[in-house]
Amino acid sequence: MIVMDNVCKSYKVAKRNAGLKEACKALFHRETEEIQALKDVSFQIADGEMVGYIGPNGAGKSSTIKILSGILTPDRGTCSIDGRIPWKNRVEHVKQIGVVFGQRSQLWWDIPVVDSFELIKEIYSITTPAYKDSLEELTSLLQLEEILKTPTRQLSLGQRMRCEIAASLLHRPRLLFLDEPTIGLDAVSKLAVRDFIKKMNTEHGTTVLLTTHDMQDIEAIADRVILIGRGKVLLDGTLQDMKQLVKQENMEKKAEEGKNFKENEYIQADKYVEENANGEDKERFDNLDQVVAKLYRQLDIL
């Protein structure tokens, strides 16, 4: 059970102006600016849920993940995971979570994958029988037999990502954070990753929090979507709710503008929504990227 309650976080960022004169000035005095990364973020996630956490770049997604994983302390608000406060007892907390960063590797570059796994076993103090069990299961689910003996540097991106995911799950965490796990993957690998996540959820009841820009990941995995923009939670519901929001806004706008509807640059997206609102073509509303793009613009959070 994850509970986030009115969590706030702000950063100080150094202002940097262009020009030689400004650079000289900055040598002696540097102005800083406060940026609110999270403003009163609250949500709850029950055990075994699969939640998609979306928002444009810089919305506050990674700050949230960092707070949940105990590597960042919030300014205000409380957060508890299964009764633990993540940043208070880091070591105990991180034993229970697994984190996959799609853009960063945690495997050792020059040694065979299985050696990396052994080192992770050591780091997490996993007992040998438990390790064997996990490894066996992960190997068969992610089809790793062939590549376990290969050094990481020789793996393709898709193969590597499968190994990364396995590495994050060797200690059988009850909670899994995935940060863009399918970025840059080919279609086959993407499907494999999504299938695997779903399987872990059904078989072990692993709670999954997924951040991604790939809306198909969300559609395939998440039952619930939390949308964050400019540090605030703007929507917490299902994909259907999200579509609904776009539709509604659009209808209102239509009503306002009446028949003098001006063509604008988003005309395509508008058309989809309009048609969908009339129930003429439900299929075309499935272009989630357009729905999300439209939503971001509507909410003005880009």
Partner: peptide, 15 residues
């Protein structure tokens, strides 16, 4: 040259 010079200035600690 100018770009190098002003980047050099930005890293004041390094300078």
């Amino acid at each position: 040259f100018r770009v190098r010079f002003s980047t050099g200035l930005q890293y004041r600690m390094a300078a």
